[in-house]
């Protein structure tokens, strides 16, 4: 990061530029295989999808140029707007919740205990399970009208609860958010390694000065951890916007499109309804949304992310 900023700020002489290029050339040679893959398997398909987004294309015949028609259709498509709303709600509730959970568990698991490796593994397992069919069935069982959650609530409240948490519009999205939250494993691992990087003597000094636990957390842990939080936040937002399999498998976008996440809607248009052109156009809108949020977070980062000098 520092190097990049320095390079931007200084004006280089011609000789220094040539030396820099020569140094970089070796680097480019090393990443050439990756670069080839990026061009052939990512960039070209991406550009092709940009082209397709201006066409009517059903994946069987040849694409027909329709100009901005797909983008116009999108603005008139009620389900599109609903899916945008659902996705924003999903992202803005899920990401903070998942980060807080991951950080909380990481703080417990960063301490030294017997068998800590086992615990770290166990808490990572949900992330490996992802949005599989087995999880969908479990979720439907847990949160269904006859499920375990209602069983517990009935015991606590002393009366029969048979609310279908995954089936009702008011709660279906929250049950998916809870599932996403349960997948805190990879953020947690990154937090653990971040926590271990914080020099222990800061805490020792703070203890001697009589700092309380909340003070140590807010004055030392959080600022020292901010680059890691920053990374997890950006990654979390990007993956949350792209979330797809949970809602596909568990609710299939229902009830009444209340869990129709943006990526699921793209999939449905493209692969279920064969409107590839329309699906491509929506993918580009999704890319724009993610880009805007990433730029915003990067822009704000100078205010709250602290790098150790």
């Amino acid at each position: 990061m520092n190097v990049v900023i320095a390079a931007k700020k200084t004006t280089l002489t011609a000789g220094a530029k040539r030396r820099l290029l020569k140094n970089n050339l070796a680097g480019y040679a090393f990443i050439a295989p990756w670069l080839f893959g990026l061009l052939a398997f990512t960039s070209i398909p991406m550009l092709y999808s940009l082209y397709l987004s201006f066409t009517k294309y059903d994946a069987l015949g040849a694409p027909v140029w329709t100009g901005v028609q797909n983008y116009v259709t999108m603005f008139q498509d009620a389900t599109f707007w609903q899916s945008v709303g659902v996705t924003f709600k999903y992202v803005f509730i899920l990401v903070p919740l998942r980060l807080a959970t991951a950080l909380g568990v990481a703080m417990i698991l960063a301490t030294k205990h017997r068998g800590i490796g086992l615990y770290r593994t166990v808490y990572y397992i949900p992330s490996l399970l992802g949005g599989s069919v087995a999880i969908a069935i479990i979720w439907a069982q847990l949160f269904g009208s006859q499920g375990a959650i209602n069983g517990m609530l009935s015991q606590l409240l002393g009366r029969t609860v048979n609310f279908n948490w995954v089936g009702e519009r008011s709660s279906a999205l929250y049950s998916l958010i809870l599932l996403g939250c349960w997948h805190f494993g990879s953020s947690m691992l990154i937090f653990i390694s971040g926590l271990k990087q914080i020099p222990q003597n800061y805490y020792e000094a703070a203890l001697i000065d009589g700092a309380s636990a909340p003070q140590r957390f807010f004055r030392i842990t959080l600022p020292m951890l901010s680059p890691v939080i920053f990374f997890n936040l950006v990654m979390g937002i990007i993956t949350a916007f792209k979330s797809f399999s949970e809602s596909l498998i568990i609710t299939d976008g229902g009830p009444l499109n209340s869990t129709m996440l943006f990526a699921l809607y793209i999939y449905k248009q493209g692969f279920s309804y064969f409107k590839m052109g329309y699906a491509c156009a929506m993918s580009w809108v999704l890319l724009m949304i993610i880009a805007v949020f990433s730029i915003f977070i990067f822009g704000s980062s100078t205010g709250w992310v602290h790098y150790e000098e």
């Binding site: 089936g167 229902g254 009830p255």
Partner: peptide
């Protein structure tokens, strides 16, 4: 059954 019961495809 209640329509909410049909949201999830349980097989």
């Amino acid at each position: 059954q209640n329509v909410a019961e049909t949201t999830v495809d349980v097989g």
